[in-house]
């Protein structure tokens, strides 16, 4: 039955080459921890992606209970943490995942750097990766505000003060981020929510897609 469905689709859109792109290829021995244990450093990229998947899933579920509004944001997070079964765990996954993803990303970056794996022909993929790093830091910064507790509020205020000190465009930049020239409040929260939930994840998906396509195009870098 499954074979028939597969054949029917394959007959029309030729999915076998797609499958081949994704799964049907050989992996060289030097990246395989089963052969040399030191090859576990090649796992960091995959694990980073795994944590990103955790972040996306837990984030999707968290928005079921979260409201980006200064009156209700903290209340809803508090309700989620104290009243909803497993709510604390899901928020914990998102909270700790944010830290773990930065750690894994750092390890992955250092692996690629010290192995010189970014050298020709992989310069482009390195730059895409660094952009992913920036997007991740942006997600961390915007996500920090969302619970609307003291920590969130004051850290964001400091972040916005820093943005304000940028020459020439500083004040415009701060107003753009905060939604108001002087207040860090209702408009800031909705902006950060939109950036955290729609804009940056959109950029992240695009960059991740390019990152993976380039890896498949170019293959894994050879052993040192």
């Amino acid at each position: 039955m499954l074979q028939k469905i597969y054949d029917w689709i394959d007959d029309r859109i030729d999915i076998t080459p797609i499958w081949r792109d994704i799964a049907d290829h050989e992996v060289p021995e030097h990246v395989n921890p089963a052969h040399h244990f030191s090859a576990f450093v090649y796992c960091f990229g995959g694990l980073t992606f795994f944590v990103v998947v955790i972040q996306i899933l837990s984030g999707m579920f968290l928005t079921m209970y979260y409201v980006p509004d200064i009156e209700n944001a903290w209340q809803s997070v508090y309700y989620l943490q104290t009243e909803v079964a497993h709510g604390q765990i899901v928020r914990g996954m998102h909270h700790w995942g944010a830290s773990v993803v930065v750690v894994m990303l750092l390890l992955h970056t250092l692996r690629v750097f010290f192995q010189g794996a970014y050298k020709k022909p992989r310069e482009l993929n390195w730059m895409v990766g660094v952009l992913i790093f920036f997007v991740m830091l942006g997600l961390g910064f915007t996500g920090y505000l969302l619970p609307w507790d003291n920590k969130a509020y004051f850290a964001t205020q400091v972040g916005l003060e820093i943005a304000e000190q940028v020459p020439f465009i500083g004040e415009a930049l701060k107003t753009l981020l905060a939604g108001d020239a002087t207040i860090v409040g209702a408009q800031t929260l909705t902006r950060f929510f939109a950036i955290h939930v729609f804009f940056l994840p959109g950029a992240l998906f695009a960059l991740l897609a390019i990152h993976f396509i380039l890896i498949r195009r170019q293959g894994i870098s050879g052993p040192l």
């Binding site: 899933l57 999707m60 579920f61 079921m64 079964a85 497993h86 765990i89 899901v90 996954m93």
Partner: peptide, 15 residues
């Protein structure tokens, strides 16, 4: 492992 807690949280109102 990934989904058990989120799903339990999502269906909490039903239970």
């Amino acid at each position: 492992g990934l989904l058990i807690s989120p799903v339990r949280m999502a269906i909490d109102p039903v239970l």
